[in-house]
Simulated scan of single mutants.
Amino acid sequence: MSTPAPHATADGPHAATMLKRRWPTALAVAFVALNVIASGSQDVADAVGGFAETLPLLPLIYLVVHQIGKAEATWPVLGAGVVLVFALPFQDLVAPSTALVALAAAVLVRGAVLGTPHGRPTFGVQALGALVFCGLALAGLAVDPDLGRYLVAAGWFFHGVWDFVHLRLDKVVSRTFAEWCGVIDVLVAVQLLFLVY
């Protein structure tokens, strides 16, 4: 006699079905958990520096995908961004955050000069986001680490809000990326505020 296939109950969908639909959230939680385990008891200055150096990548992904004009490009753009983030520390000419901010500025100038696939209003919103998030990253690096942790955590948290708004509106980036990134961003903010001493 064969075992019946799993199905939804009166109380709600089967756990496997939920996990299949929410895989970006599950992947984000696993990613952050591994990062917390790998980083151990991180010093405040190191944690603030690391997360501040990476924060400009978040709006840069949105800007690049916006300029490409296809949400399907989101995950490949993320892949290229991650390679860039890991490669930048191997050179001594410019800080990774400075390089990412410079790239974001270049994409902004290109969009302002050549136009954008989604139109000026959406481009303006993306430009504002880039200015705010890059500004919080650079400010977090410039001040005392105890204050910097709050600025950088704010940047990560509010980028999570940014992701969830884009998820709800289904604009610019892919929905799976917006969900994944939103969960990671909020959890990184929590990590910075409560798990770094």
Rank of each mutant, 00 (worst) to 15 (best):
S2C: 06
S2A: 14
T3P: 00
T9M: 10
T9P: 02
G12D: 14
P13M: 11
P13F: 03
H14Q: 13
H14C: 00
A15R: 15
A15G: 09
A16C: 01
A16Y: 00
A16P: 00
T17V: 10
T17N: 12
M18W: 15
L19S: 15
R21V: 00
A26V: 14
A26C: 06
A26Y: 14
L27M: 12
L27F: 09
V29R: 05
A30P: 10
V32C: 02
V32T: 01
L34K: 01
N35C: 12
V36N: 01
I37E: 04
A38F: 04
A38H: 01
A38E: 04
S39W: 10
S39H: 11
G40K: 01
S41V: 01
S41N: 08
S41A: 05
Q42W: 07
V44T: 13
A45S: 11
A45H: 04
D46Y: 03
V48H: 01
G50K: 00
F51N: 14
L55S: 02
L55N: 03
L57F: 03
V65Q: 09
Q67H: 04
I68M: 11
K70D: 15
T74H: 02
P76N: 13
V77R: 12
L78K: 09
L78F: 15
G79R: 09
V82P: 09
V83H: 12
L84Y: 11
F86W: 12
A87R: 06
L88G: 09
L88S: 05
L88D: 10
F90L: 15
Q91R: 14
L93A: 13
L93E: 11
L93H: 10
V94P: 03
S97W: 01
V101S: 03
L103W: 09
A104K: 08
A104L: 03
A104H: 07
A105C: 06
A105V: 06
A105I: 05
A106N: 04
A106I: 03
L108K: 11
L108H: 12
R110M: 10
A112G: 15
A112M: 11
L114Y: 08
G115L: 08
F123Y: 04
Q126W: 00
L131S: 10
G135R: 07
L136Y: 14
L138N: 03
L138W: 11
L138E: 13
G140L: 12
L141M: 10
A142V: 03
L147H: 15
G148Q: 06
G148I: 04
G148A: 03
G148F: 05
R149H: 07
L151Q: 12
A154K: 10
G155I: 00
F157S: 12
F158Q: 07
F158A: 06
F158Y: 14
W162R: 13
D163N: 14
F164N: 10
V165W: 15
V165N: 11
R168W: 15
R168C: 02
D170H: 14
K171L: 08
V172G: 05
V172N: 04
S174A: 09
S174F: 05
F177G: 02
F177R: 04
F177T: 04
F177M: 09
A178S: 14
A178W: 09
E179F: 00
W180Q: 08
G182A: 04
G182L: 01
V183W: 00
V188N: 05
V190P: 02
F194A: 14
L195M: 05
L195E: 02
V196S: 09
